[in-house]
């Protein structure tokens, strides 16, 4: 019997798959506390204060202290909540975030002790559609969390995130169609390979890049699009009623989504593991190049959060439908004409 996933370019031995899953998961998880600390430190600097500086040298142990605080909190839920769904919602958020991490290519196929190993979790032929499929399921994490809390604030926050996610998903998808047409493939590794010959796609697809990035900010519910958890009007949005473990899970999923969106942007527009000026990339340095570029984009996320005020809800909707969507559509059409002629 052929392995069921052999036809989706996933025919490596089972032990390589397990090791890869563990390594990617471990690296991805280690990035989250770092991003958390970097964000709080930088926000502090942007606002003319120190940021966390009490726990450990320069406050570097702050994420650990946060985790201990959250893990030892009492776990409770409102009487009006729906128990089963209330517990399942954070799990859905985390599962979809971690699953999306699997298609981020940290490098091409390399030789490790004579074994060919692809430095990515999976490289399915549907490529980027895999990420969109899990993005679609991620919606249920927020939505069910807000609905099952049995609180008006949570419910309204969830509704906002629902409207926001479906509005911006369309622009994001359309922005990527341009890249897919240029590369002639949906597979992320093949998109990077195409950039080795055609140059980084941020140059011909600068419009698509901007649309994708703005939609990415909205998809991850980050400032200036953090309306689902607009503190001033909705307390904490869909996470209002969550404490301890549930809150940690949503928080964790949000930051993992930031990392994944940055990594996918790097892969699709910024040349993935390729170095600029045509420098040759040594095999095992690829993951470090990808992670380095990803960290630069995460810095951009933090920078934008520190700089821009939050949008109003109607501004958010008209930006998504009346500005980003037409721009993305025109970009797609222009790219199609360019590719065909």
């Amino acid at each position: 019997m052929t392995p069921i996933l052999a036809t989706v370019n996933y025919s490596e031995p089972w032990w390589i798959q397990i090791i890869k899953a563990l390594v990617i998961f471990a690296v991805g998880l280690q990035l989250i506390p770092l991003v958390l600390l970097a964000e709080r430190k930088m926000l502090g600097r942007f606002q003319g204060r120190y940021g966390p500086n009490r726990v450990g040298p320069f406050g570097v142990m702050q994420p650990l202290a946060d985790i201990i605080k959250l893990a030892t909190k009492e776990s409770f839920r409102p009487r009006t909540s729906v128990g089963f769904i209330f517990m399942a919602a954070p799990a859905i958020s985390i599962i979809t975030a971690v699953a999306t991490l699997a298609i981020v290519p940290f490098g091409n196929t390399v030789d490790i002790f004579g074994t060919k190993v692809g430095l990515y979790g999976v490289d399915p032929s549907i490529g980027i559609l895999y990420a969109f499929a899990f993005g679609g399921i991620a919606f249920y994490g927020l939505m069910l969390g807000g609905w099952a809390s049995g609180s008006k604030y949570s419910f309204l926050g969830a509704m906002r995130s629902a409207a926001q996610l479906i509005s911006y998903e369309i622009s994001q998808g359309l922005a990527l169609v341009g890249v897919v047409m240029l590369a002639g493939s949906l597979s992320l590794t093949e998109i990077v390979d195409a950039q080795a010959t055609q140059g980084w796609f941020i140059v011909p697809q600068i419009v698509g890049f901007v649309v994708f990035l703005v939609a990415g900010f909205a998809e991850t519910n980050r400032a200036p699009f953090d309306l689902p958890e607009a503190d001033a009007e909705l307390v904490g949005g869909y996470i209002t009623e969550y404490g301890g473990g549930g809150f940690t899970s949503f928080f964790f999923a949000e930051y993992l989504n930031v990392i994944v969106v940055s990594a996918i942007t790097v892969t699709v527009y910024l040349g993935g593991w390729l170095l600029p000026f045509g420098w040759h990339t040594p095999g095992l340095a690829m993951p470090f190049i990808v992670i380095g570029k990803t960290c630069l984009l995460i810095f951009l996320f933090i920078w934008v959060r520190a700089t821009l005020p939050r949008l109003r809800y109607d501004q958010l909707m008209s930006l998504g439908w009346k500005i980003l969507l037409p721009i993305a559509t025109i970009n797609t059409l222009a790219t199609a004409v360019m590719v065909v002629t």
């Binding site: 549907i126 559609l129 969109f132 499929a133 679609g136 399921i137 998903e169």
Partner: peptide, 10 residues
């Protein structure tokens, strides 16, 4: 993927 994106996600 289309099933999940269009039906479950849309």
């Amino acid at each position: 993927a289309a099933q999940v994106i269009v039906y479950a996600g849309g």
